[in-house]
Amino acid sequence: MIDLCIDARMALSSGIGRYICEILSFFRKGFLRVTLLVDQLGYDWAQGFDQIVFNTPIYSFREQLLYPMRIPTCDFFFSPHYNVPILPISAKKQVVTIHDLCHLEFGTPLQKSYAKFMLKKALASDIIITVSHFTKGEIQKHFGPRQVHVIPLGANERRFKVLSPSSAVRGRYRLPKKFILYVGNNKPHKNLHMLKAAFQNVQLSDLALVMVGKGTPYGEIEEGDLCHIYNMAEALVFPSLYEGFGLPPLEAMASGCPTLVSKAGSLPEVCSDASLYFDPNNASEITEAIRRIVTDQELKKNLIQKGFQRVKMFSWKKTAEEHLKLFEASVHA
């Protein structure tokens, strides 16, 4: 039996939250005893696991003071983000997943200092996981050679798939008839100012830009509605300047939505030849990519088919199994 404690307080965050909830669904194994640190009780995704309430803010001084008192005696303490405990804890080994080094690249001076300090602590963990070879390279560029396990994220094929048009979802969000879609938050590295500027020059009167996610015009979308929106979109456009992985392009591919993505970060690694690429710093290239996908039906059809093939290479089941293999190997090492 492996005793595993997971800091699950970020389960409602976008990318990291999806990661936590998806792999947890495969952690209901006979050889695992899982305990979750949660900010409150009652979450559906946490049902069936032992839970310890730890409603202290992420990145806080109080978080670090209370970690040793909240983390039970266990074989592994798993941090799904780099905010690892600094003080000694009652875990035989520590595991961390570092999704990206975005705070080092785009943070304020204070954020950069904090990120550098905490990443050094995180990289002292017994098992270091990251989600792309790009991020592994970034870690080694900033902090030198070390053993880092690359485990790509997945796409939920039960949630993201081809669906019939939903007039209810269209009406609920007052979606235009024909639109290009962006999914994500509005943080600076998401490059939304460039996307807006580029879209103004598309000059197709019947085409709209729909941006969904925290801080965007349409805001956060009900979980069950996102797949319908992917299905209705002409294409997903993802103009990020930096990504550690990038889940929305995979979700779009699984939903039969062609993808236009930037050449930055991990995106070429994740999307391979199944996307149409552009320079995220060149508004004209973004404009041209949008025009092409709307007017070239053969291109659109080709990208949809390549997307279906590409997304088959990623599954949350495989992601979870690779984690479990690391835990088992470390126990027996």
Rank of each mutant, 00 (worst) to 15 (best):
A252I: 06
S13H: 14
F27I: 01
G107D: 02
L195K: 00
G219V: 08
E138K: 15
A46G: 08
F61M: 14
M1W: 02
G15D: 05
K112C: 06
S79I: 10
V84W: 04
G137H: 08
T135F: 12
W316C: 07
E22I: 00
V96K: 06
P188F: 05
H193T: 12
Q309G: 03
V131R: 01
F199A: 00
S275R: 01
V131Q: 01
E298P: 00
R9C: 07
K306D: 11
A46P: 10
K214N: 13
M1N: 12
E251P: 14
Q64P: 03
H103C: 02
H323Q: 05
M211L: 14
V95C: 05
F134P: 11
D75A: 13
G265A: 03
N185W: 02
I86H: 09
F106L: 05
M1D: 09
G107H: 06
G154P: 14
K120H: 10
M232H: 13
D225Q: 11
S60K: 10
R291Y: 04
P80V: 10
S113M: 12
Q111V: 01
N201R: 09
K93D: 04
P72F: 04
N231I: 06
S132D: 09
K92S: 14
G307D: 11
T97K: 02
F160Y: 15
Q51M: 12
V84H: 09
E298D: 14
L163N: 03
H189I: 05
M232I: 00
S79W: 10
K312V: 02
E251Y: 05
G265W: 04
Y277I: 01
K29R: 15
D225T: 11
I229W: 03
F179W: 07
I6M: 12
H149E: 13
Q147E: 14
I286E: 01
L204G: 00
Q309F: 06
V294N: 08
S113W: 10
V270P: 08
G184R: 05
I304A: 06
I151T: 05
L163P: 07
F245W: 11
A208F: 07
R18Y: 11
P239I: 06
P268G: 03
G154S: 06
K112I: 09
T135N: 12
A8V: 11
L250E: 05
E234R: 08
G244C: 05
D273T: 09
Q147S: 11
F106P: 03
H149N: 15
F78Q: 12
L260R: 00
A289D: 08
S330P: 03
Y277S: 02
V202N: 00
K136D: 09
L324T: 09
F54W: 13
L36P: 07
P165V: 04
V270G: 07
